[in-house]
Design a protein around this nucleic acid. Sequence first.
DNA 1: TAGTGGTCTAGACCACTAT
DNA 2: TAGTGGTCTAGACCACTAA
Lengths: 231, 231
Amino acid sequence: MSTPQGWEEIRAEVLRRISRRDWPPGAIIPTEEQLAAEFGCARATVNRALRELAGAGVLERRRKAGTRVAMYPARRATFEIPVIRLEVEGRGQRHSFRLLEQAEAVPPLAVAARLGLAPGARLLEVRTLHFADGKPFLYEDRWLNPAVLPEGLPPDMQATSLNEWLVKTVAYTYGDIAFSAESATPDEAALLGVAPGAALFVTERTTWAGDQPITSVRLAYAPGYRLRTVV
Amino acid sequence: MSTPQGWEEIRAEVLRRISRRDWPPGAIIPTEEQLAAEFGCARATVNRALRELAGAGVLERRRKAGTRVAMYPARRATFEIPVIRLEVEGRGQRHSFRLLEQAEAVPPLAVAARLGLAPGARLLEVRTLHFADGKPFLYEDRWLNPAVLPEGLPPDMQATSLNEWLVKTVAYTYGDIAFSAESATPDEAALLGVAPGAALFVTERTTWAGDQPITSVRLAYAPGYRLRTVV
DNA sequence: TAGTGGTCTAGACCACTAT
DNA sequence: TAGTGGTCTAGACCACTAA
């Protein structure tokens, strides 16, 4: 091996040693100081490389205890939370949508619970059907906390997408996401133009700004949708 | 605001300014040097904070062009690629599995294509049914490149899980993942103990070590499974 | 308490690219 | 070509925690 230059090469060299099982799962690897001496670089450079690998789940680091190869060096993967219009256009299709309903209502208990609101609190429900090249693509059911909409919804709501408006307007600071598969209800099947019971890919997302709940949204994709990412 | 101390507070302050729309989507923000002067810290500290935010999809950075707030500051989310046994045990349930089949065969064209192999190449197919507290949890259909298994499969294959054995033995360097929803085939339905056509959450994962394909696996989860993560 | 990682600094040079 | 981010250095101090 030639001496690694730069933190990316150090990261690659560490990965090689793990692959070759010079450093098997669970093993302690040399300290940053020792590696810096071996590679002839500053400790900060080693730190950068090892920190990246710890972030990727390959290494586990603890002060005083040192750095060890993860027992199951399962990688972490990253994916982009999609903006629906960009997602459709990224497939080379034309995006359009139809606002099905926009009304104040009392949300189902599950939604109120997810948002941490008292049962009975009134929220704004917005139901939207999105199309790709005119074909149903996605059914969106969103519950909004009206308290975070200082000026109300934009009057030209039909010309923009709520998803987009939100992400531009209310920068959120925290959220959780869950993916699952669900059978289409008769209503959903009719909207999406598929048989009842068809397997739908479902994304549920809840976001807060600080401790204030913003929105909880359920996206049901028409069959055939795949969410991809790279490790 | 009090002057931020440390890169995490700088990150938080930048996020606040984006939330307050002091820096709206698309806007150029001050240079690292200017922010370092404002916050009274070294440029490297500002760099660390802004680099994290760029990695999270909130900022976009280009040399000479400067740093701007992403037009759609959609966050990136991270999830762990699960190890099945740990996933089941993490739910407080007991994991077990049954090896359904382990045989050399010619894979379907789609699998060969994903792995970049010539159609007709022989691979090892391993089909496994995983249980949580004795209930069917996951059906695993895996195709392995025998070339990467230097010593063949371990003789006590029944006592360990192939998934786990692989992740410990063959450190991979690259992979892709796709999630989708599929209707259970009659075979899958019988294995998982559900009605044919039930909506299954499906994960497909292909991994390479360098340019050498290792394995392509399809995991079909019993209904009710949810993949969660946090932003 | 001592060893290890986490972070910061002040400065430097380099890489990329808008102009 | 000049401005901006990307990275590296040598050193320092701090925070956490295993022994």
